[in-house]
Simulated scan of single mutants.
Amino acid sequence: MNRRPLVVAAATVGVLATAAFALPNLPPNPVTDAIDHKVFKEKGKRFATAGDAPTRAAAPFALPSWIPRDATDVRIRVRTGGDDRLIRFDLGKTPLDGPQCAAGTPRRQGAPDLHARWWPRRSLRAEVHAECRDFHQYQVAVRGKRVYAWTDGTPSPPARG
Rank of each mutant, 00 (worst) to 15 (best):
S123E: 04
L124W: 10
A130M: 11
A130E: 11
V147C: 01
P120C: 14
S123D: 06
Q137Y: 02
G144D: 05
Y138I: 04
W119Y: 00
H136F: 15
P120K: 13
C132M: 04
V128L: 15
Y148D: 00
C132T: 09
Y138N: 09
W118C: 05
R133I: 03
W118A: 04
W119L: 00
S123L: 08
S123I: 11
E131W: 00
R125H: 04
H136W: 14
S123F: 05
R146M: 10
Y138M: 04
K145Q: 05
V128R: 15
P120E: 03
H136E: 08
H129R: 13
A149G: 14
V128F: 15
D134V: 00
G144Y: 06
R146K: 10
V140D: 05
E127C: 05
S123G: 05
W150K: 03
W150R: 04
L124G: 11
L124A: 12
S123M: 03
Q139K: 06
A141Y: 01
H129G: 13
Y148N: 01
S123Y: 03
C132V: 13
A149E: 15
V140G: 11
R146Q: 07
A126M: 06
Y138P: 06
R121Y: 02
A126Y: 07
R121Q: 02
W150E: 08
W118N: 08
A141C: 07
S123R: 08
Q139M: 10
D134C: 03
V140K: 01
A141W: 00
G144C: 05
A130R: 07
C132D: 06
R143M: 14
D134T: 03
E131M: 08
V140Y: 00
Y148W: 09
R143T: 14
V142L: 13
R133L: 03
L124Y: 09
R133D: 02
D134P: 03
W118I: 01
Q137I: 10
V147W: 10
Q139T: 05
Q137F: 01
R146P: 02
F135Y: 15
R125P: 09
V128I: 15
V140H: 01
L124K: 08
E131R: 08
S123W: 02
R133C: 09
C132S: 11
G144H: 04
W119M: 00
H129P: 10
V128Y: 12
F135E: 15
R122F: 01
R125T: 11
D134H: 02
P120S: 13
V140A: 06
V140M: 00
R121K: 06
W150H: 10
A126V: 06
A149K: 15
V140E: 01
Q139N: 02
F135D: 10
G144P: 06
V128K: 12
A126S: 12
H129M: 12
A149Q: 15
H136A: 11
V147S: 01
R143V: 14
F135S: 12
R146E: 02
G144F: 04
V128T: 13
R122Q: 08
Y148T: 00
H129I: 13
E131S: 11
A149C: 14
E131I: 10
L124R: 09
R125K: 08
Q139R: 09
A126G: 09
A130D: 06
R122A: 05
E127A: 13
R143H: 15
P120N: 05
Q137R: 14
R125C: 04
Y138S: 08
V142M: 12
R143S: 13
D134F: 01
E127G: 09
R133A: 12
W118F: 01
K145L: 06
R122L: 04
V142R: 15
A141E: 07
R143A: 15
Y138T: 07
